[in-house]
Nucleic acid binder design. Structure first.
Lengths: 236, 236
DNA sequence: GTCTATATCTGGATAGAC
DNA sequence: GTCTATCCAGATATAGAC
């Protein structure tokens, strides 16, 4: 079982949870082996990478529904028939993306090491970890957020449960701090949803952060500090 | 020129800026008169209302791209041919929705009365006003946010400019407070984007607020108070 | 495993009757 | 002003050669 290293940095995060490059595509391949006609990983990995990254590029610019498989075929240089050796259907492709991301989030979230930290450091680990993950898997998050309506009912609900679970994790951390007498916030539930949304902004409002020249660690620090500030302020 | 009344409440807001019911549809009719073949307002208003509200219902559940005009025809009880007497094309319908909302926001945002208030009350007026507006025109906001990618380049840019303008309005208010020695925040730009995003949550995460049982004024108060708290906290 | 060619269908849009 | 009937582009998906 992986766990957070002592040092909090995106490089340490990258080394701990390998969420990109060949290992990622290998995981995609393993997860969807049964839905594909291709059995040889050597051949599959490269094409999977092309299919997924091109889907992100097309879907994130014109929308997944508006993207045709002809577009995807042209962009990937894989024929229409060829595509269908890798995906069962167009909806299947969207479902696969959601599934892979959810699995990755689930892995990282189930990291037990975080729980043993004191409230402030636990909060820090959660926030920085989530920002790093958003940063690394940006297109996946962006896709899942904006194409959620096209997913199946089960997948939509799973995504919502995931978000509620994340909120809960924050609430528990806040509550631990309140119990320890460090924090004094009373609107814990609302504050948790707000922190979650601040984190989501990192992949949703990329255009704005680019415009402002905000860096990853700078933003993570901002989310951490404002949340902490709200936990310590006594409102009215 | 309309302006905010002394009292801050959703009822007062409703009376000041009439953003629903017949006056709204009349405005939609006036704005798009030239694109429609129907000239008689008596007949048009009712059908426009049906077309727009059904579009919201369909698009907000399956997505605008996935919604077919046949779906819309069935839902509105207007034939395919009939629909085309009201809209120039499917894209046209989406464009019209964005245009009407943007016009409405522009009207409310250009309210000069807010500027004369002291920083704290100005902030309060901006936040409560925006929440009330999100509440009243919820389907319009939700549609425009999630279907932004389907809009024309010009409309997307106009929407982004609108959001930047809103951020700027918040920043100016923050800065006024800093200059007056009331606030001590240094990350003004990031805080402004965060307040904007908290406000957007009110229409984006409706499912969650319903689950938590959060009321409109309660949420507005939360946004106001946490923003104020961040403006007064000194983050080391 | 990958391609070309094609079957089949859906959906936007319009013509013309009433 | 509204409807029915229809056109046709473009999309998903598959069959079968290589």
């Amino acid at each position: 079982m992986n766990q957070w290293p002592a040092e909090i940095s995106i490089d340490a995060f990258r080394r701990t949870w390998v969420l990109e490059g060949e290992p990622l595509w290998r995981r995609v391949f393993e997860t969807h082996r049964e839905k594909m006609q291709i059995k040889n990983p050597q051949i599959a990995l490269g094409n999977l990478e092309k299919i997924f990254t091109c889907t992100f590029r097309l879907a994130n610019s014109k929308g997944f529904q508006a993207m045709s498989l002809r577009d995807l075929s042209r962009e990937t240089d894989i024929s229409m028939g060829g595509l269908y050796a890798y995906i069962g259907s167009k909806d299947d492709l969207a479902a696969a993306i959601e599934e892979v991301l959810r699995q990755a989030i689930d892995d990282v979230m189930s990291d037990q090491a975080v729980i043993s930290l004191d409230p402030v450091n636990r909060l820090k680990a959660i926030i920085y970890g989530d920002i790093y993950m958003n940063e690394i898997m940006h297109p996946w998050y962006y896709f899942c957020y904006l194409e959620a309506k096209g997913l199946s009912r089960e997948q939509r609900e799973a995504a919502m449960r995931m978000e509620l679970k994340f909120d809960e994790r924050l609430r528990d951390t806040f509550q631990a701090g309140v119990d320890a007498g460090i924090f004094t916030m009373d609107k814990i539930a609302l504050l948790a949803t707000n922190t979650t949304s601040m984190l989501q902004q990192w992949y949703l409002k990329r255009w704005k952060f680019q415009l402002m020249g905000t860096q990853t660690d700078e933003y993570a620090a901002f989310v951490f500090e404002t949340t902490l500030c709200n936990l310590k302020c006594s409102l009215d």
